[in-house]
Write a protein that binds this DNA or RNA. Structure first.
Length: 438
RNA sequence: GGAGAGAUGGCCGAGUGGUCGAAGGCGCUCCCCUGCUAAGGGAGUAUAGGCACAAAAAGCUUAUCGAGGGUUCGAAUCCCUCUCUCUCCGCCA
């Protein structure tokens, strides 16, 4: 959410910034509502002030035992006018709020301007794609060839965009998550968190998924209940990312200055409806309704958030370096960034079978955008509450990392070597072969 | 699932219809005093808005005592609904 004061005082800059992302701010509607708001609010508050003053007089007079009927008569007519004004004001405020909640964050000045992913900027590259001297397979063929990856059964159990892993592959998946968690907690100073996978609407509004992106989420009700709440909304939503529960830990909190920065890491499944992505990445593990991710979140002092973003990306990159997987870091352009982000780096890992780099992590500084929605604050140097900055990034998407390992570490005989750093998590196994690795 | 108790500022806690944005304490900030330390004295100390202003300060004003609704000229206080916490019983991975 943007600051409403900024919209009132500097709407031109805001609309120009938003236009860079391809977002057309509804200027006329906003200005009209604002003008109305101003009138009605002043009027409402005047009426309230009158009522309060009269009520005070009545109280005073009564305590002295004086007659109050004269003052009572004075106030009698206020009731209806006041109620009407209050109702009207509330409607206007709601409309304004609705507009505000759907406006994306302003891009940071350093963000390259552009329409779509073609205008993203490469920041750096690490590692060299391996040269294969045999015909390579994609991760689906590799996994199915080993008898450890089974989309057909997954489809029977649940449907499209679900997967079933078995044996050494399931273990490799688990090993990746463990390895990531251990690296971040032991080497990068993160506090590990175990968080709810079902969250309420307030949390989703806090991080920006609601109200605009409801169709991307899965909703759940308690057993047997069609709708668990009176206003027709589901009891819970499944988290689309651990960013939601972790970041919302500080919702409605005032964090002491000395406890900043907060750095959390959590390994969770993520659930996404993938509405609007029909036909994209239908093959394999790349785009699933359910996937695991190790998520990194920083809650920081506003002065520190851009330094924190660089750190965060570095922490995610470290995982790929340890796994010796080639990647590149991209600065997303204005048109390709997510709703809440002021600046985003994507990390893209090399996938030999696709002969290209594919997103495996997205690291964003949301500045105060989420904090303002959440009322997440800290007590600043002057002892005053001020909004925090929030950042999040994948460190990394586990399923996609598994894809990268399978494809980059495949051997001519269909087996897959286990990256060095994962072997301690694999009972010292050094490759997945036809035996299933167990 | 059943029965009961509760939710007040950074924290503890008083407050059952009027001068309560809220006593008192703790904490914190500033000042004074004492040779140091300890103790003591004084002052201050919620948040988000609106108006006005070039802007800041000051000012005027509104809202907020778990959330939402209601009663009333007036609600922390009375009524209703919900959420959460705690205790006891039952069930349960």
């Amino acid at each position: 959410m943007l600051e409403i004061q900024q919209l009132r005082t500097d709407l031109d800059t805001v609309t120009r910034q938003l236009a860079k992302r391809g977002y057309a701010f509804p200027t006329e509607a906003f200005n009209a509502l604002e003008a109305e708001r101003k009138t009605i609010q002043t009027q409402t508050q005047e009426l309230q002030a009158q009522r309060n003053a009269a009520s005070k007089k009545i109280g005073n007079a009564k305590s002295k035992g004086e007659d109050v009927s004269a003052i009572m008569a004075e106030v009698a007519h206020l009731g209806d006018a006041l109620k009407q004004a209050e109702t009207q004001l509330e409607q206007i405020q709601n409309s304004l709020q609705k507009i505000l909640l759907e406006v994306p964050n302003l891009p940071h000045d350093s963000v390259p301007e552009g329409k779509n992913e073609e205008h993203n900027q490469q920041i750096r590259r690490w590692g060299e794609p391996r040269q294969f001297d045999f015909a390579i397979k994609d991760h689906v063929s590799i996994g199915e060839g080993l008898g450890l990856l089974d989309f057909e059964t997954a489809a029977k159990l649940s449907g499209a965009r679900f997967s079933l892993m078995k044996g050494g592959l399931a273990r490799l998946h688990r090993a990746l998550a463990q390895f990531m968690l251990d690296t971040h907690t032991q080497e990068h100073g993160y506090m590990e968190a175990y968080v709810p996978y079902l969250v309420n609407r307030e949390s989703l509004r806090g991080t920006g998924q609601l109200p605009k992106f409801e169709e991307d989420l899965f909703a759940v009700n308690a057993g047997g209940a069609e709708n668990s709440t009176a206003n027709n909304s589901p009891a819970f939503h499944l988290i689309p990312t651990a960013e939601v529960p972790i970041t919302n830990m500080v919702r409605d909190e005032i964090v002491p200055l000395q406890s900043l920065p907060l750095k959390y890491v959590a390994h969770t499944p993520c659930f996404r409806s993938e509405a609007g992505s029909y036909g994209r990445d239908t093959r394999g593990l790349i785009r699933q309704h359910q996937f695991d991710k190790v998520e990194l979140v920083h809650i920081v002092h506003p002065d520190q958030s851009y330094a924190a973003l660089e750190q965060l990306v570095g922490h995610a990159e470290k995982i790929l370096q340890k796994l010796v997987l080639p990647y590149r870091v991209m600065a997303l352009c204005t048109g390709d960034m997510g709703f809440s982000a002021a600046k985003t780096y994507d990390i893209e890992v090399w996938l030999p079978a696709q002969n290209t780099y594919r997103e495996i992590s997205s690291c964003s500084n949301c500045e105060a955008f989420q904090a303002r929605r959440m009322q997440a604050r800290f007590r600043n140097e002057n002892g005053k509450p001020a909004l925090l900055h929030t950042l999040n990034g994948s460190g990394l998407a586990v399923g996609r990392t598994l894809v990268a390992v399978l494809e980059n570490y495949q051997n001519a005989d269909g087996s897959v070597s286990i990256p060095e750093v994962l072997r301690p998590y694999m009972n010292s196994l050094d490759q997945l072969g036809r035996t299933g690795g167990e």
